[in-house]
Design a protein around this nucleic acid. Structure first.
Length: 280
RNA sequence: CAGUGAUGAC
């Protein structure tokens, strides 16, 4: 059972749905009883591949086997419906979870917060965060990253910075995503120095900046009208051994175009093409 | 006690 469950997880992650289904059938044919984890992995895989019907079939099978969904099952389901564009159904699953006397965990709250966020309803997302705190559920790094981004996107730069501090004081260690979110919101709030300080603290904390972190800074300097700094960070990104992403090139080209540096912009565009990337 | 779910730039 363990081996099959692991295989199903790997195949599902690799989007090998046919093989995964075959594995599952083989497992049952061998007389092995799937565990809740097996079902959860199947659910996750079907969700990632937008196979809602199959996902619902897994739910039915799980219940037919006499099992009760656990927190992971609910979390997976909420996210699955949300990403399939069925936000109302995601909310319904969250309520069903409570009706089943399962106290939602930080994941369930955060997943649903992100569902509201995708729906373009940041207010409800934050209301849910407050409810989470009221219920005594401790926010984890995902919750904090989400809340910080919500405030950042709403232009509440200072508040986002306060929450960033709060998170650290509670012993939640910021990761690369926290830092790139902070860099982005500082940049968009015009706090360029703070953004650069964030980038430095990230490295000082032992994190290796990824393409997103670099592109965010490149984009910031482009918008700020400083193409030279943008180009500097682009070069540093290359020197760090990273393959620039399309958004990184876009940010660099934007920086040059904004400063009327057409030759440089064209050069960046040609490099992008030579790298075999598809311009967007 | 425990394998499976969520977050960032364009």
């Amino acid at each position: 059972v363990f081996v099959y469950t692991t295989l199903i997880g790997v195949l599902g992650g690799a989007r090998e749905m046919t093989l995964m289904g075959a594995m599952y059938e083989e497992m049952k044919a061998a007389g092995l009883k799937p565990t809740l984890v097996t079902f959860n992995r199947l659910l996750y895989a079907y969700g990632r591949n937008n196979m809602l019907e199959e996902a619902l079939a897994v739910c039915a099978e799980l219940r037919a086997a006499g099992m009760a969904p656990d927190r992971v099952t609910y979390g997976t389901l909420i996210d699955l419906f949300s990403k399939a564009g069925q936000h109302e159904r995601a909310v319904a699953v969250f309520e069903e979870m409570q009706a089943a006397h399962l106290q939602p965990d930080a994941v369930a709250y955060t997943v649903l917060m992100n569902s509201y966020k995708r729906m373009g309803d940041p207010h409800k997302a934050l209301a849910l965060y407050r409810r989470m705190l009221d219920e005594g559920c401790e926010p984890n790094i995902f919750s904090y990253n989400t809340v910080i981004d919500l405030h950042g996107k709403a232009g509440r730069t200072r508040l986002a910075m306060t929450i960033f501090q709060e998170m650290r004081s509670k012993g939640v260690v910021p990761d690369v995503m926290t830092y790139s979110t902070m860099i982005d919101l500082c940049g968009k709030g015009g706090l360029y120095d703070a953004a650069e300080e964030m980038f430095e603290s990230m490295q000082a904390a032992g994190h290796v900046p990824d393409t997103v972190a670099w592109s965010t800074l490149i984009q910031m300097w482009g918008r700020a009208g400083d193409p030279h700094r943008a180009a500097l960070y682009f070069r540093r990104m290359l020197r760090a051994g990273l393959t620039p992403s399309v958004p990184a090139y876009n940010a660099l080209m934007f920086a040059f175009l904004r400063a009327d540096m057409f030759v440089e912009a064209k050069a960046a565009f040609d490099t992008l093409r030579r790298a075999g990337q598809a311009p967007s």
